[in-house]
């Protein structure tokens, strides 16, 4: 699969899920593009963060990834 199609699949997956869930483990993305190797999916997802399509969320010990701007945002973290 080429890169652009991969990115599209990732965005579609996240948009579809966005009502119920906004953050996913890296591994959840492997299933979105099952024909790609984990390492390549990792690189693609990290590239999408760099481009500003996706963003990281971290508990400190674990990292999750979601569409930028969905779910709780940093600016609102200090609200209840």
């Amino acid at each position: 699969m080429d890169k652009e199609a991969g990115k599209k699949a990732v965005v579609e997956f996240l948009t579809k899920k966005s009502k119920s869930k906004s953050k996913f483990y890296l591994k959840d993305f492997y299933e979105v593009i099952p024909e790609e190797k984990p390492r390549d999916v990792k690189n693609l997802v990290n590239e999408m963060v760099k481009e500003g399509t996706l963003e990281y969320w971290s508990s400190g010990s674990t990292t999750m990834i979601g569409l930028k701007g969905t779910g709780k945002q940093a600016s609102a973290e200090d609200e209840a």
């Binding site: 990290n46 963060v49 990281y56 969320w57 971290s58 508990s59 400190g60 709780k72 940093a74 973290e77």
Partner: peptide, 11 residues
């Protein structure tokens, strides 16, 4: 617990 903070490009 946790949050969306970081510096640009770093996870």
């Amino acid at each position: 617990h946790g949050g969306i903070v970081g510096v640009f490009g770093y996870g």
